[in-house]
C-alpha cells in the first residue's frame, strides 16, 4: 500500500515538474562549467544543498573568491525559507509510530517544487501514505536534477558558444519567473523588490559580502516598509 503511494509520487514527478527542473539544472550545470567548478562538485551540490538559489550562491561566491564564512552565511540565509516550509508540511505527514528519522530525511528531500506539489496534492492522499508519496516524488526530482546538472556541465563544452550562453541565461530567467509568479502577498512583493534593488548596490560596495548584505539590508527595509502600514 505504501509502496503504491511511493510509485504514485514518482510517476507524478516524472512529468512537468521534472521538465521544469531539467531546464533549471541544465542551466546550472552549464554555469558551473563556465565558472570552472569541477563536475563532481556541481553534481554533488544538487544532492547536498538541494536548493538552486543556495547552489547558485555557492558557485557565484566561490568564483568571486569570497571568504569561506561569507559563503556559508550567504547560503544559510538564502535557505531560510526551508524553516517555514518544513514547519508547515511536517504535521501533514506525521503518523503515530513512525520512526523520527524518516521525517528528518524528508526534510532534506524538501525543495520549492516538492513542497508546492505536496501542498496541492496532500488533501487527496490519505495521511498514512503521504510520506511515501513525498519520498517517491522528491527522489525522482533529485535524480532528474542531478542528471541534468551533469548533462548541462558536460554538454556545455560541446555546444556552440551561443547555445551555451542561452543555457546559462535560463538560470536567471527561471528565477525571475518563479519569484514573480509566486508573489501573492506583500511580504513576498516587498522582499523581492527591496532585494532586487539592494543586490547590485551591495555588489558595487563589497562584492565578497554582497549576497548576505543585500539580504539583510533589503530584507530589513522590506520588513520596515511592511510595518509602516
Amino acid at each position: 500500500m505504501t509502496n503504491h503511494a511511493f510509485l504514485q509520487g514518482a510517476r507524478e514527478a516524472a512529468g512537468v515538474p521534472s521538465a521544469v527542473l531539467v531546464a533549471g539544472f541544465v542551466g546550472f550545470g552549464a554555469l558551473a562549467a563556465a565558472q570552472q567548478v569541477p563536475l563532481g562538485i556541481a553534481v554533488a551540490s544538487t544532492v547536498v544543498i538541494w536548493a538552486l538559489p543556495g547552489q547558485l550562491i555557492f558557485i557565484d561566491m566561490h568564483t568571486l573568491g569570497a571568504p569561506l564564512l561569507a559563503t556559508v552565511v550567504a547560503v544559510m540565509l538564502s535557505s531560510a525559507r526551508f524553516l517555514p516550509m518544513t514547519l508547515m508540511l511536517m504535521p501533514e505527514m506525521r503518523q503515530p509510530g513512525r520512526p523520527a528519522w524518516q521525517y528528518y530525511v524528508a526534510a532534506q528531500l524538501l525543495s520549492l517544487s516538492g513542497w508546492t506539489m505536496a501542498v496541492a496534492r496532500f488533501p487527496g492522499i490519505p495521511r498514512a501514505q503521504r510520506l511515501a508519496w513525498f519520498y517517491g516524488f522528491t527522489l525522482v526530482l533529485i535524480l532528474v536534477s542531478a542528471g541534468s546538472t551533469a548533462v548541462g556541465y558536460v554538454g556545455a563544452d560541446r555546444l556552440p558558444p551561443l547555445a551555451r550562453l542561452a543555457l546559462v541565461m535560463m538560470v536567471p530567467m527561471y528565477y525571475l519567473l518563479i519569484l514573480l509568479g509566486a508573489v501573492r502577498e506583500r511580504t513576498a512583493a516587498l522582499g523581492l523588490a527591496c532585494g532586487a534593488l539592494a543586490g547590485p548596490l551591495a555588489y558595487v560596495a563589497t562584492p565578497e559580502w554582497s549576497v548576505p548584505l543585500a539580504g539583510f539590508a533589503g530584507g530589513t527595509a522590506a520588513y520596515l516598509l511592511l510595518r509602516m502600514r
Binding site: P172, L192, G195, Y203, G218
Partner: peptide, 25 residues
C-alpha cells in the same frame, strides 16, 4: 522579518546576475 530577508537574498542574487553579470553572462 526572516521571510523578508529570504526573499531579498534570492532577488538580490538574480537582479545582480541580470544587472551586473559575472562570468559568461
Amino acid at each position: 522579518w526572516i521571510s523578508c530577508v529570504a526573499y531579498a537574498i534570492i532577488a538580490g542574487v538574480v537582479s545582480r546576475m541580470l544587472v551586473i553579470p559575472t562570468g559568461v553572462l
